[in-house]
Simulated scan of single mutants.
Amino acid sequence: MASSLLKMVLSVATTLTLALMGGGPATAAPPRPSDSPGIDVSWPQCGQTLPEGLAFAIVGVNNGLANTTNPCLQEQLDWAESTIRYPQATSQPRVALYVNTANPGLAGSWWPSSDVYMGTSVDNPYGDCEGKNDAACAYMYGYAKAYDDAVLRGVEDPETYFWWLDVETENSWQPDTAANRADLEGMTAYFESIGADVGIYSTGYQWGRIAGTVPSTSNLAGLPSWLAGARTVRGAKSNCSLPGLTPGSRVALTQYVSGGLDYNVACK
């Protein structure tokens, strides 16, 4: 009896000590495997029940086109913020954003005619935009779409997010790869002007068709790459060893599809 009582006292004392130290089984967070995948979601997943136990999430801001808003943006951001609780699991931000990109030229529903947007006079490295289908106006178009994404889509504190530029051939592009690069440079310039980090999502083939060869002087050079195209997690891990999309770029993420959802591997 005395021995049992002593054990009980010691047990209670240990529990109290752990509680005071903030430790103990009841308060410790379960470990998160370092190779847990991330996921990217957007308008196609509106209304779907999304999985849990993920390392990070990337939420699409647009509704498939560069000048639209994902109708589930706030809902999906709320899901990501409440579900992804393990930012230490990978090198990736816990929650990031991606945006659709395009260079529609004069066929677009809106095209810039000057270097001023929303009251801001933009320093345009391609010269004066005068409403033509050229690199100068493409730069302004990209700058404007990035502004809209950060300011008009309902994203709070946009400067705190990592922004991925989704560059795919299914969107509208010009035959002039230099003008397309200017468009993406304009987007990058705006996001960087608010203090946000930027990366590029594409495949080597699509990037080559759209943007061509990126000079080392471009602000696209050295941006992290997120590579699509893998069908399995093994393939995605293998793609981490591929070259980045621009000079000096490293592959930070690779994507694979499973169960109709896009999952992502964080490269070391």
Rank of each mutant, 00 (worst) to 15 (best):
V116P: 08
V116C: 09
Y117D: 13
Y117S: 11
M118S: 15
M118H: 12
M118D: 12
G119N: 00
T120W: 12
S121E: 07
S121H: 11
S121K: 10
S121M: 09
D123R: 13
D123A: 13
N124S: 06
N124A: 08
N124E: 05
P125Q: 08
P125W: 02
P125V: 08
G127V: 01
D128P: 13
D128L: 13
D128T: 14
D128C: 11
D128H: 12
D128Y: 15
C129V: 04
C129I: 07
E130P: 12
G131I: 02
G131T: 02
G131Y: 05
G131M: 03
K132C: 15
N133H: 12
D134V: 02
D134R: 01
D134F: 00
D134E: 04
A135E: 07
A135G: 04
A135N: 03
A136N: 01
A136Y: 03
A136W: 04
A136L: 01
C137R: 00
C137H: 00
C137N: 02
C137V: 04
C137K: 02
C137E: 08
A138Q: 05
A138M: 02
Y139C: 00
Y139A: 05
Y139V: 06
M140K: 03
Y141W: 08
Y141M: 06
Y141L: 00
G142V: 08
G142T: 10
G142R: 03
G142S: 08
Y143N: 06
Y143V: 07
Y143Q: 05
Y143E: 03
A144D: 09
K145D: 14
K145N: 12
A146E: 01
Y147F: 09
Y147M: 07
Y147L: 08
Y147A: 05
D149R: 08
D149A: 14
D149P: 09
D149K: 07
A150W: 00
A150C: 07
A150D: 09
A150F: 08
A150I: 07
V151Y: 11
V151E: 11
V151A: 13
L152T: 15
L152K: 10
L152P: 14
L152Y: 11
L152V: 14
R153M: 09
R153L: 11
G154E: 05
G154A: 00
G154H: 02
V155R: 04
V155N: 05
V155Q: 03
E156W: 11
E156H: 10
D157H: 10
D157S: 14
D157T: 14
P158N: 06
P158I: 07
P158W: 02
P158M: 04
P158Y: 05
P158S: 01
E159K: 04
E159C: 07
T160W: 10
T160I: 11
T160D: 14
T160P: 11
Y161F: 11
F162I: 12
F162A: 11
W163E: 00
W163R: 04
W164F: 08
W164Q: 03
W164Y: 05
W164S: 08
W164C: 08
W164L: 05
L165R: 00
L165M: 04
L165Q: 01
L165S: 02
L165Y: 05
D166L: 01
V167H: 00
V167T: 03
V167C: 05
V167A: 03
V167K: 01
V167D: 03
E168V: 07
E168H: 03
E168N: 04
T169N: 10
E170W: 12
E170H: 12
E170I: 15
E170N: 13
E170A: 15
E170K: 09
